[in-house]
């Protein structure tokens, strides 16, 4: 292979002193010293999370405190990593929400499996499962990383209900019980 000899351009006086380069570097340093910081002191400081963020999946209650999940198991079916495990159950006939008939006996989401895809929220016909703004899940054991039903409701809290589907149904059934049609 032929060797091509490249003639190197001699350095100028300014280049030989290094001073322009040092000053340019110092300028960057000084500029950043006086600029307001862009980082946060995590975990003492937390970022503002947008409302459409896909955080940890949670279960929510409606404004009356009724658990919205009816354990239809569609999220369990759609979940790509099979993180969700539901044990369906029946609401006792003497409960105030007996007209809903069905509620989960147990509901587990394994956060070691969850990929935060949001398909469970998308598929839910009752708007009961929501990926909210909680993003940091830690635990010291595998068991601690499985959110059970109590923990999911604790994380989820209450969200407004625009449809009130079951309340409307109950009111209508009570009205018709008097023979109305």
């Amino acid at each position: 292979m032929a060797v091509k000899v490249v003639e190197r351009r001699p350095l100028t006086l300014a280049e030989r002193t290094y001073l322009p380069q040092i000053l340019a570097g110092l300028r960057v340093t000084w500029e950043n010293m006086v600029r307001p910081p862009v980082t946060l002191q995590y975990p003492d400081e937390r970022p503002a999370i947008p409302q459409n963020y896909r955080g940890v999946p949670t279960l929510v209650r409606d404004p009356e405190g009724r658990e919205k999940c009816v354990s239809c198991q569609l999220c369990e079916f759609v979940c790509p990593p099979k993180a969700i495990r539901i044990t369906p159950g029946e609401i006792p006939a003497d409960a105030p929400t007996a007209h809903v008939e069905k509620a989960p006996k147990e509901f587990e989401i394994n956060m070691l499996r969850c990929i935060y895809c949001g398909l469970c929220q998308e598929v839910c016909p009752e708007e009961a499962i929501w990926l909210q703004t909680q993003y940091s899940m830690t635990g010291l054991s595998r068991e601690a990383m499985v959110n059970d039903k109590a923990r999911l409701y604790e994380l989820g809290g209450t969200l407004p209900d625009a449809h009130r589907k079951w309340d409307v149904k109950k009111t209508e059934a009570e009205r018709q019980a008097g023979g109305a049609h």
Binding site: E76, G89, E101
Partner: peptide, 9 residues
């Protein structure tokens, strides 16, 4: 079988 399991599983 009521409320035991969804048939698609």
């Amino acid at each position: 079988f009521r409320f035991k399991m969804r048939v698609w599983f």
